[in-house]
Design a protein around this nucleic acid. Structure first.
Lengths: 207, 207, 207, 207
DNA sequence: CATGAATGAGCCTTCATTCAT
DNA sequence: GATGAATGAAGGCTCATTCAT
C-alpha cells in the first residue's frame, strides 16, 4: 500500500518537513486536550507557531493534519520497536522482551497513541485504510515473533491462535494508554507489564 | 455515584420516557453512520420522528443526547448480562459462560457498543465520570465472578491479577466490536469465543 | 426548458415567496452598486432585512441569489411587455409601440436590467442556460411581431433578417441601460426612442 | 485624457514592456476562461511565466492587470482599424468597409473583446473613465466617417443621429462577440456583416 | 406540548499582498 | 530583479440553540 502523500504548496522539501513537524507536534497536544473536531485550524496554526495562512501552505484540508499525525505516530512506534526488537530470534525471552518493550513504547507515547486511537476514525475514506494497514503491520510484527517461537517449538499454536494472540498483545498494549484512568490507579507500568505478560503467557488455570 | 439526570421541559414522565426512547434509537443509528460530531441536531430530531423544537423540549444540549445514548447502551448490556449470568456460582464453567455470553452481547449490540466506545470521549466533564463508572461496574461483574472462583480454589490469583484479568475480558470483548474490520475476516463469533477463552484461561506456554 | 427550482429549507411557501422578494430587492440594489462578486452574503442578508442564517434558509449557495435575481428580472420585463403589447396585430404602429414600450420598460428597470446584463455570466453551468433561454424568449416576442408584419406585407424580410432584427431591437434596448453613461448626455428617453425607431425602421440611406 | 500609468518597481523600461506583454497575454487567456474575479494572481503569474513575487514588481494591485488588459485590447482594436480604414473618404463604400472591417476585427479578437466587455465594469473609479474614454474614441471614429458622408451628401443625418448611429454600429459589432452563443447558430460572419449592413443602412420599411 | 423559522457565533478555507533572501 | 514563503483579513456557509406561534 503506497503512502498517501499530502500535497504542499511550498516547494522546499526541507522546509515542508520542518513545518510539518511543528504542525504535528502542535496538533497532537491539541487533539489530546480537546479531540480533533473540537480543535480549530487556527488553534493548530497557533500551536504550530505560524499563521493560519501558512498552515494551509502545507496541507489542503483540516483532515490532512489528522492523517499526518496518525501517520507520524505509527512510524514513531514502529521505528522504536524495530530498533529494539529482534523478531527473528524465536525464544520465550524474545517474546517477553518484545511485549515489554511495546508496552513501554505505548507508555512513553501515551498521549500520541491515545490521540491516534480515538481520532483515527475521523479520517476520511481516503486515509483510513492506509492507517489501518499500518496497524496491521504492527500486529504482524508480533505474529512474526510468535511464528518463530512455534517453529522453535517453544510453544504450539495454530495459525489462527497466533493471529489472535498478536491482536491481543497489540490491544492490551493500547489499553494501557486508553484506560489509564482506571489502570494507573492500580498498577505501575512495571507491574502492568509483569502481570500482563504472566496472564498472557500462562493463563489463569492451574494445571 | 448518582445518576446524572438530564432535565426536560416536558413534565409528563411517561412522555419523556417515550420521546427519549425514540431519540436514543434515532441517534444511535446516526452516530453509528457518521459519528457524534458529524451528526446534526436536526438529523437527530428527524430520525427520532419529531421536530428540532421538540427535541429541545427533552434535552438541554446536544451532548445530552450522547449521554443518554451511552447511558442506555450500558444499561442494555448490563441488563442482558445480569439476566443471563449468575455471578455467585464461582466455577470454571460459570466463568466461561460469562465470557461467552458477554462476547455474544457485544456481538449483538456491536453497533451500539462501537458508538459508545468511540464517542464517549466527547462527553463533557459532567457526564464522562458517570459513564466511566458504569464501565467499571461491568468490569466489577467479572471481578466478582473471578473472586468467587478464587474463593473456591478453581485457580489462584492475587487481587491485582483479578482486576487486570477482568479488564482484559472486558476490553477483549469490546475488541470484537471495534476491530471487526480485521477480526471478522479471520473468525466467526463462535471461533472467536472459543479461541479467546482458551488463550485467556490457559495462556500459551506449554507446561 | 423547466424552471430551475432553488430549494429552501423553510416549508411555508407563502413565507418563502415573501423572504425571497426581500432578498431579491436587497440583492439587486447591492449588485447594482458593487457587482455580484464584490457583494458578500452578509451584506445581502442585511439588505434583505434578516440574518445570514436566515438567508441560508432560503438558498443553498450565494449563486442562487444571482439566479433568483436574474430569473425575477426577466419575468418582470416579460410580464410588463405581455401586459402591454399585442404581438399578433402585425402592423407598423404595433411594431413601433412594441419597441417604444420595450425601451420604456428597460428604462424603468434600468438598474435591474443592468445587473442582469452584467452579472448573468457569473451564473454556473446549471443556471446560465435557463437564463439565456429566457432571453431568447424575449427576442422571440419581437420575432413574432415582425413575422406578423411580414405576413401582412407591411415590409418584406427573410427569416434570417427577422431574427437578426429582433436581436438588434433587444440589444439596442439594453444599450439604453448599459451605456447610459454615454447616451443620457445626449438624449432623453423619448428622443432615444424616436431616433432609434427611425434608424431601425428607415435606415440611413436616402432613397 | 492622459494615459493612466501603472507604476512598476522595475526600472528597465524594455523589461517592463516585455513582462507586461507576457502578463497581458496570460491574463487574457485566463479571464476568458474564468473571468477576472475567479482568476487568482498566482494563476496570472504562472500563466505569465513568472512568479507571484515578480508579478508584483510590475503592478501594484490585481486590478492593474485588468486595466492593462483592457487598455491593450482597445489599442489593439484601434490600431487594426486605423491601419485599414480611411475615415476621411466619406462615401458609402467607405462606410460599408469600415463596418465590415470593424466586425471582422471583433470576430478575430472575440475572446479579447468579450473579456473587456464583461470585465471592464470591475475596474475601479480610477481606471474606468479612462477605458470608457477609449471606447468613445472608437465610437468617434464611426462618427467621423458618418460626418464626412453627410458632408458629401451621401445621406442626411442630424448630429444626434450621427452619434446614435455610431453607437449602434459599435454595439452591434460587439454583439457579434457577446451574443455569439445565439448568433453563431444562425449566421456566418459574412452573413452577419452583410445582413447587419443592409439593416443598418436601409432599414426595413418598404418605400 | 409541538413546531419550525430565526439567529449569529464560529468554522474552514482562500487569496491578494508583502518582504526577506 | 526574481523568488516564493508568510501573512491575516475576509468570505461562504453551517448548525446548535431559542422562542413566538
Amino acid at each position: 500500500m503506497k503512502k498517501r502523500e499530502v500535497p504542499a504548496s511550498v516547494k522546499d522539501e526541507r522546509l515542508v518537513k520542518k513545518r510539518r513537524n511543528q504542525m504535528i507536534k502542535g496538533a497532537i497536544s491539541l487533539f489530546k486536550q480537546k479531540g480533533f473536531h473540537q480543535t480549530t485550524t487556527r488553534e493548530i496554526a497557533r500551536a504550530s507557531g505560524f499563521s493560519i495562512g501558512t498552515l494551509y501552505e502545507y496541507i489542503r484540508k483540516k483532515e490532512d493534519v489528522l492523517y499526518l499525525v496518525c501517520d507520524r505516530i505509527y512510524d514513531e512506534v514502529r521505528d522504536r520497536m524495530e530498533q529494539a526488537i529482534d523478531t527473528t530470534q524465536g525464544d520465550l525471552d524474545g517474546l517477553k522482551l518484545a511485549i515489554a518493550y511495546y508496552f513501554r513504547v505505548v507508555d512513553e507515547l501515551q498521549d500520541e497513541v491515545l490521540v491516534m486511537y480515538q481520532e483515527a476514525k475521523s479520517l476520511g475514506k481516503e486515509s483510513l485504510p492506509y492507517v489501518l494497514n499500518k496497524e496491521l503491520q504492527m500486529v504482524a510484527m508480533f505474529e512474526h515473533i510468535l511464528r518463530r517461537c512455534v517453529d522453535n517449538r517453544v510453544f504450539s499454536l495454530t495459525e489462527q491462535e497466533i493471529q489472535l494472540f498478536a491482536h491481543n498483545i497489540f490491544v492490551l498494549g493500547q489499553m494501557w494508554g486508553f484506560r489509564r484512568w482506571a489502570l494507573k490507579k492500580m498498577y505501575t507500568l512495571d507491574e502492568y507489564i509483569e502481570l500482563q505478560t504472566k496472564l498472557l503467557l500462562e493463563g489463569i488455570i492451574k494445571r
